[in-house]
Every structure is written in C-alpha cells, then in structure tokens.
Simulated assay, not measured.
Amino acid sequence: MENQKPSLMLVDGMALLFRAFYATAVTGQFMINSKGIPTNGIHGFIKHLFTAVSSFKPSHVAVCWDMGSKTFRTELFSSYKGNRGEAPVELIPQFDLVKEVVESFDIPNIGMVGFEADDCIGTIARQLSGHAKVSILTGDQDILQLLDDNISVILLKKGYGNYLVHTPETFFEEKGITPRQMIDLKALMGDPSDNYPGVKGIGEKTALKLLKEYNHVEGIISNLDGLSKSIKAKIEQDLEMLHLSRRLAEIKCDVPVNIALEEAGLKIVKEKALNKLTELELRGVQRLLPIDEAIVS
C-alpha cells in the first residue's frame, strides 16, 4: 500500500473561540470558575476543536491566532474592521488562557503581529500543501479564496459537529467562479463585516456577472467602455477604493511564519493536558481528547 499523505488541519482559533463564547454568553453562562475566571469560550473552543478532529481525523493540527487589531490592513485603511466593538470583558482573560490550553495539548499556536490569523493560515497552507492534505477549520467564508486541489475548507455551521466542506469544485458549483476570483468579488462588492466599501452600488449579482465575463478586476478595468453607462460610472468613481479593497481582501500567503509538519503531529500527553484542564476547572471536555487509553498506563 502506498504511503498515505499526512493530513494537516489548520484551525482559525478566534473563529472557534468567539463562536463558543457568544453561543453561551447570550444566556449568561460564562462558566466562572473558583478563581473568578470565565471559561465558557475556552470550553466551547475545546469542544469545537476535538469534535472536528474526531470527524475529520487529521494526523497533524495547528491553531492560528490574530495578534491584536493593528495589522498591515489597518495601516492601508484606518477604518478596516473599525465597526467591531471592544471584546466583552468576560472574553478578555480567555484569549491568553485558550493558548495555554492548546499548548498543553502540544498543538502549535501560530500568530504574527501585523497580520491576521487568515494570513498565517494561508502562508502555512501554501507551504505545506505539497507535503500534506490541508484542511482549514473556520467559520469565515473569506478563507475560501485559498481553496485548491490540496487545500479544502471546513466551515462551521450552527451547533457542534455540523460542517460544510468546500473544495474548488463545490465552490465553483455554488458561485460559478474560481476561489481566486473571490478576492475580486470582495474588491467589487466590499465587505460590511470588515468595514470596507468596494464599489458603491455594485452588489454580488453584478460583481459575479462582471467576473464571469472579464475574469478579474484588471480585466474589468481594461474593458470599461464595454460596460453599461451606469456600471462604468460607478467603477470610475470608486476606482481607487476598488484597488484598495482588493488589497484588503487578499489573504497574504508570504507572512514570515513557518512550521515543520512534524511539529504539528497530534500527540497529546494525557497528564499534561488533564493538569491544565483541572487547573482551569474545565469539566466534561476530557472525554473529547484523542488520547489512546490502551497505550497510556
């Protein structure tokens, strides 16, 4: 039998942590432990992580994090993500603690100041997709631009254990464009959740139509005279914003982070992991850990 390619799951840590936090915060279940520390986000993060590990059975796992809100994108456009409020006070202590928990599982934490988690994910996915089948676990559609023959995306749906898995084929079926064209799609229509406008008055329908015809932003710009008067006027009026939005939308795949595949091998040391969970008084998640009971004496 030929050697099976290793499989690496890259996890968008913030996506899991925020999703877990807000799912319980609405009912006020912050799971405050005896030290007065809320652990609801961490608890749900662990549950999301290992539910996905048991569903997709990766041989290797790494978690990528945002490292503060200032990045090269906020330097390009100061209102980038400027619509996001401050993190809730109950979530703040969980940012550092969740990384300690990941460390106790001997899973690498990866992040780089000045870049978003997505940029680290993109960089590592590209670096290692020749050596492993890469899947990316996130709740964020933006990452779909990274899809290729060796990179798939697992989108978290509501609840635990519900996923939508995308490959370049399923993406094309859904949108009628290639994953790379998603960058141009966002450049044209903007992204309200990241707070940049794209071209005023161009929505998804028009943007998709233009991309199917002219391939990318440059193709559209070099064919302005072939467009309807109103679309031409809109693009000309927002040309600078269109170029800027494209730079904001593109995930950088050349961030100065690297990781050797063997560093991410999934090998949890039972005692080390359980000590950390006990210290934080995280109950009911031990059984989710992929620890081979037969080997551990």
Results as ranks from 00 to 15, higher is better:
P256K: 06
L239F: 11
Y196N: 11
L210E: 03
K200Y: 07
I251D: 00
L248F: 00
P192I: 04
Y214D: 04
A264S: 15
A187N: 03
S230K: 13
Q181S: 08
Y214H: 13
A260H: 11
A207D: 06
A264K: 10
Q181I: 06
S245E: 00
S245W: 02
D191V: 12
E262F: 08
I231G: 01
K252S: 13
R180P: 03
I177L: 11
G226M: 07
D194Y: 08
A249Y: 01
K229C: 05
G201T: 04
C253V: 15
G190C: 04
I259T: 09
Q181L: 05
I202S: 00
Q181R: 08
L227S: 03
A233F: 02
S245A: 13
A233M: 08
K229Q: 10
G226K: 15
E218Y: 00
E262H: 10
I220H: 06
F172K: 15
A264M: 14
I183M: 04
P179S: 05
P179I: 07
M189S: 11
L248R: 01
S222H: 12
T178M: 13
N258T: 12
A207Q: 02
I259V: 14
I183A: 09
E213R: 15
A207I: 05
V217S: 03
E218C: 00
L227T: 02
G198V: 07
I251V: 13
Y214P: 08
G201P: 07
S230P: 08
E262P: 04
K200H: 09
K175G: 07
D254L: 06
L248N: 01
Q181D: 14
E173C: 06
V255Q: 04
E262S: 15
G226R: 13
P197H: 00
I235H: 05
D194W: 06
H243S: 09
I177T: 09
D191N: 11
K186R: 14
L211F: 08
E240T: 14
G190T: 09
S230R: 10
L239R: 14
A187G: 08
N215W: 04
I220M: 07
I220Q: 05
N258S: 15
S245H: 00
R180Q: 12
A264I: 13
G203Y: 02
K175S: 13
M189V: 14
A249C: 04
K209I: 05
F172P: 11
E218G: 00
L208W: 01
D238W: 00
T206A: 07
E236G: 05
G176E: 05
N215L: 09
L242M: 09
E263I: 01
K186T: 12
L248I: 02
S245V: 03
E174F: 01
E213D: 09
K229T: 13
P197G: 01
E174S: 10
I221A: 03
H243F: 12
P192S: 12
S222N: 11
K229H: 06
I183G: 02
L227K: 00
I183N: 02
M182G: 14
G219L: 05
P197N: 02
L224P: 06
L227H: 00
I220N: 05
V199E: 00
E173D: 11
I235R: 02
E174W: 01
A207V: 11
